[in-house]
Design a protein around this nucleic acid. Structure first.
Lengths: 321, 321
DNA sequence: TTGACCTATGACTACGTAGTCATTATGTTC
DNA sequence: GAACATAATGACTACGTAGTCATAGGTCAA
């Protein structure tokens, strides 16, 4: 390439990385030559030399509407900053290790660990010098890694407050996976706030954060016939299943049972469900996470817990109009 | 690192890339040293030298349930093969160029162009020596790039066949974006097959491949009061909006109008919708695309058009039981 | 015992860039 | 016009690996 343009390699580099240092006509000569032979700067070589890849890694589970929207948000925000997103996904917890192994080989500018099912052991392992690491919506990481999370506990509390205003006497919490730290926080917020009102809140585990799991649980519960006034579900996706399960069993939502979700997925506001839920400000969370990864100023291991907002849908509206 | 283990750099490399060539005890010595000082092979340097990154790029729009599931599928399949996925996403067509620019700098092992809105001009630009490129579900690319796609035209034909069996006299096609090549193919299949039955099929453009666009269109149409027997919608996501829009306006689906979708999203089989749709075998499409990218054997610019299957949901069931 | 052969390892170079330093040409000041 | 600052460029090296070639020792059969 340098030969083609009749200049030194150093000048070629300058044209593409600091054009201000090269005379206009030389610059033109180099660019012409580049177009002629299809030269494009090699990001791999640049990364090797500069020790910066301009790539941020994300370890994310392959399933779940919520994670997909988080991923989308990350991708978009990073693109705005000229960074790329390298995706390490894993189907089940066993494969997390594979993903983490791969992560270390690439010298990423930063790494996002998003998933409520990464074990503490694995989290600790990522606490090392080198690229910044941020845990995303993963309360387990508290104290182990810098963390960005929605305020799960306050979230379900706020939902309880809203639901209580509709007048309820009995309640139930439908979680996804009991081991998940988000699930625990959300249940705690609900149980505590309901307890303050003198309402008990049994925990039922759906078994997964999926529509099917919610559907199945709702079917079983509606067979048992002891329906509570409100079912607080740990995630929107599960809540959709719960609603459909109840309705299929002939139970009216919100006529017979109120239902709340958590996450604020786009589908929550779809007319078919119009689910009352705690909306996570995903873009805010993501921006915060990116800032923590890339801000060279502040190397502090601060963590951020950001509040969500309650979306009041039809699934908690007592008076049908 | 070599010094720490008391061996040459070449031996260190061998331990991590071709362990068979190193004596067991030497190997142990190297691994111990690596653990001691936290050494991990540098994928950047390896890529520079070997001219292989083990990374496949994907240019995908940031929005749309369908693309998200495609992305998920790619990520998972690639991980199985020890490859990583570098995500280049773009919000609107203007940003595609930025993504393509970035793509060229990284020497990727392959590139997937997934989006029905990348212009032919941009597609042609990617026709260059170097990494393999595959267009995904993007009929525009026919003849320009190797293509993997579901058979859009045959898909809507199959849907017509199913719908016709329910007995319909009038029809309508609700597309997302008229310029999108997938939209065109799908409409063509529907119009042709309906035409064979002597049924006209006007095209209505929702304006976007979104729930909201579908909802809005359905609201407007139901105000006009000239509802057809069946509304064939160009994508599931739009179809959900159409269904909710109709139902909100007091129109029964499938009582008054039958509705079909296209894509086969997970939500299609949710009890709330149970949408009749053309299910794309995404994993098959993705596997095929990956094979085309990575198979060193067959350098042919073959293209693959893969048939989908009709899922018969409640939205086309005439007799309510 | 000797040559053929295999195993385990080291020495060396290239991959394409960025950064440091050196060099030359071009002004600029008194 | 001498001394000096500035702009534009080249030469050179290191980043960490993979692949090629060379070397040292060991095994085996004739």
């Amino acid at each position: 390439m340098a030969a083609e343009a009749g200049v030194s390699q150093a000048t070629v580099t300058r044209v593409f990385s600091s054009p201000g240092l090269v005379a206009p006509d030389t610059q033109q000569r180099v660019r012409d030559a580049a177009n002629r032979i299809g030269y494009v700067p090699n990001a791999i070589a640049r990364s090797l030399k500069s020790q910066r890849t301009d790539i941020v890694g994300a370890v994310v589970p392959t399933q779940g509407e919520y994670w997909q929207s988080v991923l989308t948000s990350f991708s978009r925000r990073l693109a705005d900053k000229g960074k790329q997103l390298l995706l390490f996904s894993f189907a089940d917890a066993d494969h997390v290790v594979d993903a983490l192994d791969a992560v270390e080989q690439y010298r990423l500018d930063g790494l996002v660990l998003a998933s409520s099912t990464i074990s503490q052991e694995h989290l600790v392992r990522m606490r090392r010098p080198g690229p910044r690491v941020v845990a995303f919506n993963q309360p387990t990481a508290t104290g182990l890694l810098p963390l960005v999370s929605v305020d799960n506990e306050a979230g379900t509390s706020a939902l309880v407050e809203h639901v209580a205003a509709q007048g309820v006497a009995t309640a139930m919490f439908v979680g996804g996976v009991a081991e998940a730290s988000t699930d625990q926080m959300r249940y705690r917020g609900a149980a505590k706030s309901l307890g303050d009102l003198g309402i008990a809140c049994p925990y039922i585990e759906a078994g997964a954060f999926t529509y099917d799991a919610g559907y199945k649980v709702a079917s079983q519960i509606s067979e048992g016939l002891e329906l509570p006034d409100v079912m607080m579900v740990g995630s929107d996706e599960v809540a959709f299943g719960v609603i459909d399960g109840l309705r299929t069993a002939g139970v009216s939502v919100p006529g017979d049972v109120l239902v709340t979700g958590f996450d604020g997925l786009p589908q929550a506001s779809w007319a078919g469900y119009d689910l009352t839920t705690l909306v996570q400000p995903i873009d805010v969370l993501v921006d915060e996470a990116i800032a923590m990864l890339l801000d060279t100023e502040d190397p502090g291991e601060r963590s951020q817990v950001i509040p969500g907002t309650v979306y009041e849908g039809r699934t908690t509206r007592r008076i049908n109009d």
